[in-house]
Write a protein that binds this DNA or RNA. Structure first.
Lengths: 210, 210
DNA sequence: TTGACAACCGAACAAATGGTCTCTAACGTG
DNA sequence: CACGTTAGAGACCATTTGTTCGGTTGTCAA
């Protein structure tokens, strides 16, 4: 990155930022204007250098055909999941609503982490109360908003009588429910089906910045 | 997605695939050819419908200015991290080398999960032996290849005498080392510094497909 | 039958755009 | 100084490209 002149670095960063903002690359004349260059030939000249250095890739004769390839980062499809609140033992589990989904607090993940689930949201784990689900303070759990669960699903559930939130595997056994911790060395809890309100199905968990 | 004609869906999918392949959008005439349409005006006609339906966004008068916006998925920078092997108690921890990094087994994550670390690789967790690090069978841990650690870093370490891999927080205490599990209810282990080979620093963990 | 309308075709236009050519200026090297 | 290289300026050209306009076809309801 240090074998570039100031002008070249400026061009490179402009292209990168433009793509981030517009989802398509800038034209040569847009680069020219934005970087205060007086001729398209100068832009072309420097783009050749950038291409030779492996910073970008160009398809000749095709407009806006600039591809940024640097830093091991490519561009691809990402899913931006809103983090609508926190989950902790004593707090009710937030549910997605127009009030809290347009927040600026989001997490970007790969779409294949989502499968093809819809109504996906995320919760930040507060405290160590979910440790039997193998998630700790600061972790983020990705959930699908559902109110029913199949056998063995990992769910976020609210226990009415205990007034407590929990993450467990769900097993219906007659008119009772077994809630099994992810950590197999820990004991399950049993309760009546009417005491369990399912708020979402856990589809992934992310632990950032360890 | 069902209020689209066959032709419109074909156009939409072509645009999406083209962007995935080239990192810049196709021109109207490229869409025309690829979808077997006889006139550019038909493409324009259908693009207007797609835009009205919220599937794409267009900047008028600008070539290749098509932005795909659908399914909550946008496009952005992603980091593709190679999964170079598995980590389990009794197995040596793989280290990145040209032999095993160009594999097809990768995981896509958001770059801000990485910070600005370099030499990043990933390991798939096998078995439940890492459960005291709050990671379970099938989880993926993201590591930075380092051979030294600061106080409190979460590291992947190889214990020479025990011939065992482990994920723990690292604390140097004189000529001894304390390895502290992430689960604070579990007990640390103490050993000599010479018995510990640090293979990497854990920077994130992902639990897919719960 | 008529009219409205959606979908499409073919052609043409004007703007946008990439590339190239010539010419300068600065700089270092022998 | 002569020479080559690098960096840039300005003009120009040929495509590429988005857009528009008139016409056509098929469907369906009044």
């Amino acid at each position: 990155m240090k074998d570039l002149s100031g002008k070249q670095r400026k061009i490179f960063e402009y292209i990168r930022d433009f793509i981030d903002g517009h989802d398509y690359p800038p034209s040569i004349r847009q680069i020219q204007e934005a970087c205060g260059i007086s001729s398209t030939s100068v832009v072309d000249y420097n783009l050749r250098i950038l291409e030779k250095g492996g910073y970008i890739k160009r398809d000749r004769e095709v407009s806006r055909a600039i591809e940024v390839t640097h830093g091991g980062q490519k561009r691809g499809r990402i899913a931006t999941v809103p983090i609508i609140g926190t989950i902790a033992a004593g707090l009710p589990i937030p549910t997605p609503s127009p009030d809290n989904v347009d927040s600026t607090d989001t997490i970007d993940i790969s779409p294949d982490l989502l499968g093809n689930h819809e109504n996906v949201f995320a919760l930040r784990v507060k405290g160590t109360s979910m440790i039997d689900a193998l998630v700790n303070d600061g972790d983020v759990v990705i959930l699908e908003a559902v109110s029913d669960a199949k056998q063995g699903d990992m769910v976020a559930a609210w226990l009415e009588r205990e007034q407590e939130a929990t993450l467990k595997r769900f097993f219906r056994e007659g008119d009772r429910v077994r809630l099994q911790p992810a950590n197999s060395t820990m004991e399950p809890i049993y309760t009546e089906a009417s005491n369990v309100v399912i708020q979402g199905r856990v589809i992934a968990a992310v632990r950032p910045n360890i």
